[in-house]
Design a protein around this nucleic acid. Sequence first.
DNA 1: TCCTTTATTGAGAATGCTTGCAACAAGGAA
DNA 2: TTCCTTGTTGCAAGCATTCTCAATAAAGGA
Lengths: 144, 144
Amino acid sequence: MSHCHTYLKKLRDQGYRITPQREMIVQIIAHCGKHMSAEEVMEIVREKSSSINIATVYRTLDMLVENGLASKFDLGNGKTAYATGKHGPHIHLVCKHCGSVTEVSENDISAFLERIEDLYDFDCHPYHFSIHGLCGECSNSEIS
Amino acid sequence: MSHCHTYLKKLRDQGYRITPQREMIVQIIAHCGKHMSAEEVMEIVREKSSSINIATVYRTLDMLVENGLASKFDLGNGKTAYATGKHGPHIHLVCKHCGSVTEVSENDISAFLERIEDLYDFDCHPYHFSIHGLCGECSNSEIS
DNA sequence: TCCTTTATTGAGAATGCTTGCAACAAGGAA
DNA sequence: TTCCTTGTTGCAAGCATTCTCAATAAAGGA
Ligand SMILES: [Mn+2]
Ligand SMILES: [Mn+2]
Ligand SMILES: [Zn+2]
Ligand SMILES: [Zn+2]
């Protein structure tokens, strides 16, 4: 069963209509622990021998984000990734040289975000964003 | 005069060729204190009665970013903005409801970034990134 | 000054994502 | 169960950005 039902119920309660397309997309990203691009969602849909238009995938994923059921973020590789709340709030450190992605845990950012919220009266919502820079390895090799 | 010369010299020293297109683009974003999109740079070029291909504008701006002479960031409105170093390192708080952009100053983030660099051995390069959320006003009006 | 090397450009195709709109169908009322 | 309202979908066009590749032109050497 998992949380799919909870997700769908929450949407229905918000007044959204539950279509087969939405059910399928919610099921896919709720069961997948990692990040997914819209295109990856599409591929899994195709494997299930049905088909959904890519625009619908984007619309559904963005709707989940707007309702706090998923987060959306840019991995710096030209593609946008989505993940359910299960994935947890954190920062991605994206190396602009080798493309590696390191995840910063919630603990390491919560104090900072609280400070921002206080100082700027801003509700940092999906705590899922990217900082671009150089990873340790690339940083060293660049000196040579 | 301004820092255009410094910028161009730095590029030449790196082995880049100085073309009229690059000179013009560097001059434009070096003199403009605020963020600019590639399209905005293009418009100014056109006003000067010359013409540069849009791909060249993107390539040049990205080259400046790679060499630390400019920073690049997503304002959450579907367009990417660029700015010279003069604009200074900071965070953008982008309200996903009204689209407002609040700037967080360097002071408020430096301690946090240092902590990240230590813990994760990651060189946070252009300290120019965005956090999406809700601004104070939109946060309040959403309760009703 | 002219030549050679090779980085850079412009043009256009391609990619990732969004939008407008007419056809369609979920969900509630009768 | 049938009908209506209106949210949702698919499709195609549009937009921002990137990529490929042949033609061009900086920069340095002769
Ligand atoms: Mn992540
Ligand atoms: Mn800024
Ligand atoms: Zn790296
Ligand atoms: Zn707002």
